[in-house]
Design a binder for these strands. Structure first.
Length: 775
DNA sequence: GCTCAGGGCATTTTT
DNA sequence: TGCCCTGAGC
């Protein structure tokens, strides 16, 4: 019995079996955190705790699913099914649907994703006649998000002097008004945004103690994964829910807290001991993932950080090879070096492609590596960028679904009222929206009862078109009630003409859009089938409940398995690879080292942790690479390697060849800069680390040859005719691939002579010839 | 109501 | 370099 406990070391074992009272599990990178969490739950179940009394919260669907599967394999599927296990957002969305009456929302409330939020904010800004260059919707959205994460209501915001003066100094004094209006309109639309799911849960618990008590009573055990990433709203929910039984177990690693920009508070984990004086601490310090070299090198980076929970992460694995530093003079060379290393080590040491990951700070950095991998025919996959559920065609179809479930959903209505085109344009929509705002109701309520509103001043033709739209949605609503999710979805896709529309579009983009719709329908079919099998509700409404909370990483394809992974360091958290390249380590990419940015001690420490997270993804080998010079936004930029490279203990490195100099204290470093990064013509000076004569000479020599060849070398993808230059490879719809011989004229009358392999030399007016630029 | 030329702007991201 | 936004013009 309990043989699963045998897999655990002493610290892990303790953390699993001490189930009562508050527990803080400090889990260093690769120390078996997920294992402890799952075994702890399994252990609770074995000891007789009912699954429905266990609340386990994670940050991603993937983490929740994996944990659930592992528990199912230990404790049985029938038990695992009844656990309250999921992401913060999905669990509390579920709770809010049950408790909708108390908070004055419909149970079928829509969940607005960030695009919906932004678009609503944009309309509000326009409606207030504010300039959206000053009031950037994204910035306003993040202010509102910040407020909600800190449980500041619109009212509280308006009377908060600090926030108001901060807004004023950003020249956006009206944010508090926008917040108020945004909050109101979400309610009128029967919609919650992501932050609302936590914010309103907090309001629910604050204003309805009887509801809080019900859940406090229910959850005998509360477990939280990645506790260092919780924001204030999440922190408070957990604290309240666990207050009765006090069986709270949080697992996390302060050294991996890298999400402060989205409201995560490292204080939550640092202060756990104050919140629960009678707590126990379990430290998982043995790293099972990586070589000693990697673990020690990573430790040496965060050693400088002041605020941390003391711990000694160690590895008993092989010492392993030193971390290799690749210093390239240009970004192209960096890409080349990385691809070369992959080819060589892969052949020499028989690795598969899935054993490699390339990690970078920003998504935009992926391009150069894509290119270099493509040149060597190395298969790769990229995470990040446009997610499946964010694609236009998917959002359009989902908006139809949303409208059939919650007709007050203004954002959905605005997307589809004229898609496919039915002659209801922007002017009409503005009129309708104005009336809706005036009457404090949803647009649907206006168009469903147009005569009551004097037809909103519309002409006869338009009224008829709107009437048809209303009928269509009514019909779909009926349909979704009568049939299962798949049948309803399929019929909607057909009847709206979306499917046919995309089917007729034979361009590559149209083809892929059609495929995407098919893929979505397949997913819905799968949902319908499983729901039926498990005896759960199988209506479109039920499918829609969670789809807003899904992301790309929730549907990985099989054919993508054996490929090199390209992703940001942030999204690599929780993953591991045998071989990891941490690339683009220029100082310029780290705000704490960028001139003109205010670096706080906190942000500097977080960047060290980011670097720590990156390195500890590697099991066997790690590479660190940087380029001293790259094209950024059309300018030649000089970069120094990040200071974090200098902070690494060189005993663990191979190939670091810098003029190390005293880097001074953090404050001095923050004021160091190497010229300007402004847009325009300002160029940077070579960094001081390269000011020895020798390195300067190499630098200059390389630079000259680079400048000479940059024209021919430059390659990119896109179809902006302004970017087309002689020497480029382009693709034409009819003539296929060709080489641009010369360009004359200025836009819009750019003429290009292009040599096509199959069609000979052609003069094209770029205005009419769509050329896709190829790498 | 749609298309296209030109301007302007660029962290990290899960839900 | 890529791409989103907008206003002008059809």
């Amino acid at each position: 019995m309990l043989d699963y406990l045998k897999d655990l070391n002493e610290a892990q074992h303790e953390a699993v079996v001490r189930t009562e009272g508050p527990s803080l599990v400090i889990a260093g990178a690769g120390s078996g955190k997920t294992r402890v969490l799952t075994y702890r739950i399994a252990h609770l179940l074995k000891q007789g705790a009912r699954p429905s009394t266990i609340l386990a919260l994670t940050f991603t669907n993937k983490a929740a699913r994996e944990m659930k599967e592992r528990i199912a394999s230990v404790a049985g599927e029938n038990v695992a099914r009844y656990l309250w296990m999921g992401t913060f957002h999905s669990i509390f969305a579920r709770m809010l649907r049950v408790e909708h009456e108390v908070i004055g929302y419909p149970s079928n409330f829509t969940i607005y994703d960030s695009a919906d939020s932004k678009s609503l904010i944009k309309t509000i800004i326009k409606g207030f006649q504010l300039d959206d260059k000053t009031y950037k919707p994204g910035v306003v959205a993040s202010r509102i998000s910040m407020a909600k994460n800190n449980l500041i209501t619109p009212m509280a915001y308006a009377s908060n002097a600090d926030l108001k003066s901060a807004d004023k100094s950003m020249r956006m004094p009206a944010i508090s008004e926008i917040y108020k209006e945004y909050y109101k309109r979400c309610r009128l639309s029967g919609a919650m945004d992501f932050d609302d799911l936590l914010f309103i849960t907090n309001l629910l618990f604050r204003d309805h103690p009887e509801v809080l008590e019900k859940y406090q009573e229910r959850f005998g055990y509360v477990l939280v994964d990645e506790y260092q990433d919780t924001n204030y709203a999440q922190y408070l929910i957990i604290k309240k829910l666990a207050a009765k039984h006090n069986n709270i177990c949080v697992v996390g690693d302060d050294a991996q807290s890298i999400y402060s920009f989205r409201g995560a508070r490292i204080e939550n984990i640092l202060n756990f001991k104050n919140d629960y004086p009678e707590h126990r601490v379990f430290k998982l310090e043995q790293n099972y993932r990586s070589t000693q070299t990697i673990v020690n090198a990573a430790n040496s980076i965060i050693a400088k950080n002041k605020r941390q929970i003391p711990k000694t992460v160690f590895s008993e694995n092989d010492k392993g090879k030193p971390i290799k530093v690749l210093s390239a003079l240009t970004d192209n060379e960096e890409g080349f070096l990385v691809a070369q290393e992959i080819s060589q080590t892969q052949m020499r040491d028989h690795y598969q492609f899935l054993d490699y990951a390339i990690l970078y700070r920003t998504n935009a950095q992926s391009r150069i590596f894509e290119e270099s991998l493509r040149k060597r025919n190395i298969p790769y996959k990229i995470y990040g960028g446009l997610s499946f559920y964010q694609r236009k065609e998917i959002k359009d179809l989902l908006s139809y679904f949303r409208m059939t479930i919650n007709r007050d959903d203004n954002e959905a209505l605005k997307r589809i009222i004229n898609y496919p085109a039915r002659g209801i344009g922007a002017t009409t929509l503005t009129k309708l929206e104005t009336v809706a705002v005036e009457k404090e109701t949803s647009i649907w309520n206006i168009i469903a009862a147009l005569p009551d509103y004097n037809y909103a001043g519309l002409n006869k033709g338009t009224i008829a078109k709107i009437y048809n739209f209303v009928i269509l949605i009514e019909r779909f609503s009926q349909l979704t009630k009568e049939t299962d999710a798949f049948e309803a979805a399929k019929r909607i896709a057909e009847h709206t003409g979306i499917l046919k529309d995309l089917y007729n579009d034979k361009s590559p983009e149209g083809l892929s859009r059609h495929e995407n719709i098919q893929e979505l329908l397949n997913g819905i079919q799968e949902f319908s089938i499983t729901a039926k099998e498990q005896g759960e509700p199988d209506k479109l409404e039920n499918y829609l409940e969670n789809v807003a909370l899904l992301t790309d990483q929730d549907n990985e394809k099989d054919e993508d398995r054996n490929k090199v992974t390209l992703m940001t360091v942030h999204s690599a958290k929780g993953l591991e690879f045998k071989n990891v390249f941490v690339v683009g380590l220029e100082e310029d990419l780290f705000p704490s080292q960028r001139q003109g940015e205010k670096a706080t001690l906190e942000s500097l420490e977080e960047e060290r942790r980011l670097f720590y997270v990156a390195i500890t993804r590697a099991r066997e080998n790690a590479w660190l690479s940087y380029a001293n010079q790259r094209y950024r936004w059309g300018n030649l930029d000089f970069c120094a390697p990040s200071r974090f490279l200098n902070e690494l203990d060189e005993n663990y490195l191979e190939g670091l060849n810098l003029n190390k100099q005293d880097s001074g204290n953090d404050d001095q470093q923050n004021r160091l800069g190497y010229g300007q990064t402004t847009q325009g013509f300002a160029h940077r000076q070579p960094p001081s680390a390269f000011k020895t004569r020798e390195s300067q000479n190499i630098f200059n020599k390389k630079l000259v040859s680079l400048k000479e060849s940059s024209q021919a070398k430059s390659s990119f993808e896109g179809d902006d005719p302004r970017r087309i230059q002689a020497g480029m490879t382009v693709e034409h719809q009819r003539f296929g691939e060709g080489k641009v011989l010369n360009i004359e004229g200025v836009a819009p009358n750019l003429k290009a002579t292009v040599f096509f392999q199959n069609a000979g030399q052609k003069q094209l007016l770029l205005k009419f010839a769509k050329l896709k630029i190829k790498g």
